[in-house]
Amino acid sequence: MTHRLPHLATRIFNAPLVIHPAKAEIAIAALADRLGISRVWRADQGEMRPLMFDMEDEYGFAEPGRTVVSGYDNIAGVARIEICGTLVQRLGELRPYSGMTGYDGIRQNFVMAMDDPEVKAVVLDIDSPGGEVAGCFDLVDLIYGARGRKPIWAILDESAYSGGYALASSADKIIVPRTGGVGSIGVVWMHVDWSKAITTSGLDVTFVTYGDRKVDGAPELPLSAEALDRFQADINSMGDLFVETVARNRSIAPDRVRATQASCYMGAAGVERGLADAVMAPDAAFRALLNTLA
């Protein structure tokens, strides 16, 4: 199992994420213990406490790939596409697996459902804190571009934050339960600095590079001010893309979306902000959609 941890670390550290901060902290704390990182600090200098966490269950290390018979459920003419857990670019599964959902599987399911003559409408059944930036906004544009062909509803069970909300915003309607939530319209990038740990262990790391910026962000080195400025500019660009995408999808002024400052809103508060259309339990929302098709 441990030979896969470095690969997972590269998908969390030093990569932009559209994920709820609480979920990011869980993943970071778990990885820190497995990778020998003794202390992790937030940007506000608060220490991130270690958590008991089963990486095998969460990230699917316990068992190899499985055979999936179908990618979505057709319920009375409505294709239900399940989107839950952490979102990743490529999972190789048509359904959520071990706490993750792949943008690749969502895309394939959505395209098949839109082309399925037995499907009259599509439901994005979402309960996700978000995940990777890579692959997210291309999928959002795909779903948004399909509006008008068939009704597309995002029915949350229970919440859609960050990348999960980006997907929800691409639907015609967003229905959130009263204890569910929407928002977290922001981007996070986390740099891990191993330089002191390497020095303490008696090791020296020498980089031989071509290009002054080749090793910017390398965990073996402290993050320079110049590198931080460049990465901040990239994150700002991604954040602007997120804001503009939600503004387009929800017909909201970009300044209103930006003013949320990545806050999360529960139930009715999300509707008041224009981030959702109604507060309703998932089963009631599904029946409401069926009534529109009768």
Rank of each mutant, 00 (worst) to 15 (best):
residue 1 M to L: 10
residue 2 T to P: 04
residue 2 T to K: 14
residue 4 R to I: 04
residue 5 L to T: 07
residue 7 H to F: 13
residue 7 H to W: 12
residue 7 H to A: 13
residue 7 H to L: 11
residue 7 H to R: 10
residue 18 V to R: 11
residue 21 P to L: 07
residue 23 K to A: 14
residue 25 E to G: 03
residue 30 A to Q: 06
residue 33 D to N: 03
residue 34 R to P: 01
residue 36 G to N: 03
residue 44 D to F: 11
residue 46 G to A: 13
residue 47 E to F: 01
residue 48 M to Y: 10
residue 50 P to R: 08
residue 57 D to P: 02
residue 60 G to M: 03
residue 60 G to L: 05
residue 62 A to I: 13
residue 66 R to V: 14
residue 71 G to V: 02
residue 73 D to R: 08
residue 75 I to P: 00
residue 80 R to E: 14
residue 82 E to C: 05
residue 86 T to G: 04
residue 86 T to N: 05
residue 88 V to R: 05
residue 93 E to F: 06
residue 93 E to D: 15
residue 94 L to D: 01
residue 94 L to S: 06
residue 95 R to I: 07
residue 95 R to L: 07
residue 99 G to D: 03
residue 102 G to E: 04
residue 106 I to T: 04
residue 107 R to N: 01
residue 108 Q to H: 14
residue 110 F to E: 01
residue 110 F to G: 01
residue 112 M to W: 09
residue 115 D to Y: 00
residue 118 E to L: 07
residue 119 V to K: 06
residue 124 L to A: 10
residue 125 D to I: 04
residue 127 D to L: 15
residue 128 S to V: 08
residue 129 P to I: 07
residue 133 V to K: 09
residue 135 G to E: 06
residue 141 D to V: 07
residue 146 A to D: 01
residue 147 R to Y: 15
residue 147 R to L: 15
residue 148 G to H: 03
residue 149 R to N: 09
residue 150 K to C: 10
residue 152 I to Y: 12
residue 153 W to R: 07
residue 153 W to T: 02
residue 154 A to S: 15
residue 156 L to Q: 00
residue 158 E to F: 03
residue 160 A to K: 06
residue 163 G to H: 02
residue 163 G to T: 03
residue 166 A to D: 09
residue 166 A to E: 09
residue 167 L to Q: 03
residue 172 D to P: 09
residue 173 K to E: 15
residue 174 I to M: 10
residue 174 I to K: 08
residue 175 I to Y: 11
residue 176 V to L: 11
residue 176 V to I: 14
residue 178 R to S: 15
residue 179 T to E: 13
residue 184 S to K: 12
residue 187 V to F: 05
residue 189 W to E: 05
residue 192 V to T: 08
residue 195 S to E: 04
residue 195 S to G: 02
residue 198 I to G: 00
residue 198 I to T: 06
residue 201 S to Y: 15
residue 201 S to Q: 15
residue 205 V to P: 00
residue 206 T to P: 00
residue 209 T to G: 00
residue 214 K to A: 15
residue 218 A to E: 14
residue 219 P to S: 11
residue 219 P to I: 06
residue 221 L to M: 15
residue 222 P to Y: 10
residue 223 L to K: 07
residue 225 A to F: 10
residue 227 A to M: 09
residue 230 R to Q: 14
residue 232 Q to H: 11
residue 238 M to C: 08
residue 247 A to D: 07
residue 252 I to C: 07
residue 253 A to M: 13
residue 255 D to N: 11
residue 255 D to K: 12
residue 256 R to A: 07
residue 260 T to R: 03
residue 260 T to S: 13
residue 261 Q to Y: 11
residue 265 Y to W: 10
residue 268 A to K: 09
residue 268 A to L: 11
residue 269 A to F: 03
residue 270 G to A: 11
residue 272 E to T: 13
residue 277 D to Y: 11
residue 282 P to C: 10
residue 283 D to C: 13
residue 288 A to H: 12
residue 289 L to H: 01
residue 293 L to E: 05
